[in-house]
């Protein structure tokens, strides 16, 4: 019997769709190419960080360091950007992986609670970023392709002679439209596809959920518990690094003081997306929807301001976003049908 259940992650996807539909009716240009592209471009960074956080939370852990690691990595990649796109990209990701490795060692080898361990690396990464940047933002090099990563689309990587506008036919213009999606959005989409496959179709992914669902049970069946936990922090670090690279590229500078509060956005996206904070149960697609939901609410508030009826300061926007999040979470717990086993409870 396959009865239909509204899972928490399905619920957030529904909320997202409804919200976008309402906004599209209410505001001119909400679904316009420009707006869609800028929303995706900006929120892809949060989405990447949230994906890493999703893996960590599925094991029952938490990674508070992602925000300042992203900031640090944006500085590292800005410093390396003059050597070229690849150097900036690889350097930023490598710095993120390094932070993840440190988290992994602290948590699995020294048995420090994830909350404390990543709190420490959060402070350390923040300081490192400021030191490397000399306490100011570091301009990236505009001589290389580096800025295309954050600001451009896939077309911007192509040579002009490949895209001779006179010769493209119908298919070509569709291809052109797709390729004109912002690069960061492509990166995020690709990361989420890989993330979804890893969670559902690899032993590592299954072990992530098993460890979060029952650490002792996992240990007793011989699963590599520590190795699994170690790797989720490395993944989280790497994705935070990637987000940092995009940050530097998009804003044209390494930003040592950006990234504050990103970890909270990421945690909110994951939780709203239907992943249990205690681990063992979660959804990659839900996390993406959660991240987009946060971004869309932000955009809607901006549009609302633009309508001229009301004028909300940034502070009020923050309050409203917080309230909306609460409403979503409450609705989720009310609307989602409980698993039948919850009401049975007994060990019959």
């Amino acid at each position: 019997m396959k009865n239909f259940r509204i899972t928490p992650s399905l619920a957030v996807i529904l909320v997202l769709v409804i919200l976008v539909a309402i906004a599209a009716l209410r505001y001119d240009g909400f679904l316009g190419v420009y707006n869609v592209q800028s929303v995706l471009r900006y929120n892809s960074m949060f989405a990447l960080v949230a994906l890493g956080m999703c893996f960590v939370i599925m094991t029952g852990g938490i990674d508070l360091s992602v925000g300042s690691v992203a900031a640090m990595c944006s500085v590292v990649s800005a410093l390396l950007s003059s050597y070229g796109l690849f150097h900036g990209l690889a350097g930023g990701i490598a710095a993120g992986i390094l932070a993840g490795l440190i988290n992994g060692v602290l948590i699995t080898k020294l048995n420090i609670l994830p909350f404390i361990a990543t709190l420490a690396t959060m402070l350390a990464a923040s300081g490192t970023g400021l030191l490397l940047a000399g306490n100011q933002s570091v301009s990236v090099s505009y001589d290389t392709y580096f800025t295309n990563l954050g600001q451009g689309d896939l077309l911007s990587f192509m040579r002009p002679e490949w895209v001779d506008a006179d010769e493209v036919g119908f298919l070509g213009s569709i291809l052109g439209f797709i390729l004109s999606f912002p690069t960061p959005a492509w990166i995020a989409i690709l990361a989420y596809i890989i993330g979804g496959v890893v969670i559902n179709h690899t032993s590592f992914g299954r072990h992530v959920l098993a460890v979060g669902g029952g650490t002792e049970a996992s240990r007793l069946m011989g699963l590599p518990v520590n190795r699994t936990i170690f790797f989720v922090y490395v993944i989280s670090g790497a994705l935070a690094g990637l987000a940092g690279v995009i940050l530097a590229s998009q804003f044209g500078a390494g930003q040592p003081i950006e990234g504050i509060g990103w970890e909270l956005f990421a945690i909110a996206s994951v939780v709203v997306g239907g992943t249990l904070l205690s681990g063992g149960k979660g959804s990659v697609a839900g996390t993406l929807a959660g991240a987009l939901l946060l971004g869309v609410i932000f955009t809607i508030l901006n549009f609302e301001n633009g309508m001229g009826w009301i004028s909300l300061s940034a502070y009020w926007q923050s309050v409203i976003r917080g309230l909306f999040l609460l409403v979503v979470v409450i609705l989720q717990s009310r609307l989602t049908s409980k698993d039948p086993a919850d009401s049975l409870k007994a060990s019959t």
Binding site: T202, S203, R206, G213, E216, S218, M221, G280
Partner: peptide, 28 residues
């Protein structure tokens, strides 16, 4: 507490420990 992983399926619970040997080119 030490046996089942409650939120995972029968299939996953049955094969979790076996998965590494069921993996081909990184995929189950």
């Amino acid at each position: 507490v030490q046996g089942i992983i409650p939120d995972m399926s029968v299939a996953d619970n049955l094969t979790l420990a076996l998965l590494p040997t069921l993996t081909k080119m990184g995929m189950i």
